[in-house]
């Protein structure tokens, strides 16, 4: 079970309570009626779909209901950090900080927790 830290509930909660909500930090154009179709398509449809570090919006839909932002590694599925909606893009934790997070929050695998279950 993946645990996600909600910056509003201030604790780690099960992924079952959350819903992914797309790429983060996409600003709606202020002059949306004036932009071209291509510019609208760029804003509305096109996403980077990065392999590796991505900034995403998540929603604690079955908890406090809040949207927030997360930096996540799409290869390992590891959440590097989460922070409240409305804050600017936060700096990525350093390699040492990331390692410390990984150390602290070992991903629970079936093999580790249930592997011996009869």
């Amino acid at each position: 079970m993946l645990l996600i830290h909600c910056p509003y509930c201030e604790e780690d909660r099960s992924e079952l309570e959350f819903r992914w909500a797309g790429e983060a930090h996409i600003a709606r154009p202020e002059n949306i009626a004036a932009i071209t179709d291509e510019e609208f398509a760029e804003y509305f449809f096109l996403r980077n779909n990065e392999k590796g570090l991505t900034y995403e919006r998540w929603r604690h839909i079955h908890g406090c209901g809040r949207f927030f932002n997360a930096a996540r590694d799409t290869v390992s599925d590891r959440f590097l950090m989460t922070y409240k909606a409305g804050l600017p893009k936060q700096p990525i934790p350093t390699a040492e900080e990331t390692a410390a997070i990984a150390e602290e929050k070992t991903v629970e695998t079936w093999e580790a927790t249930e592997g011996d279950a009869r």
Binding site: E17, H62, G63, C64
Partner: peptide, 10 residues
Amino acid sequence: CSRTIFGKVE
């Protein structure tokens, strides 16, 4: 107290 999930329902 907490809003949470119970099986398939909130």
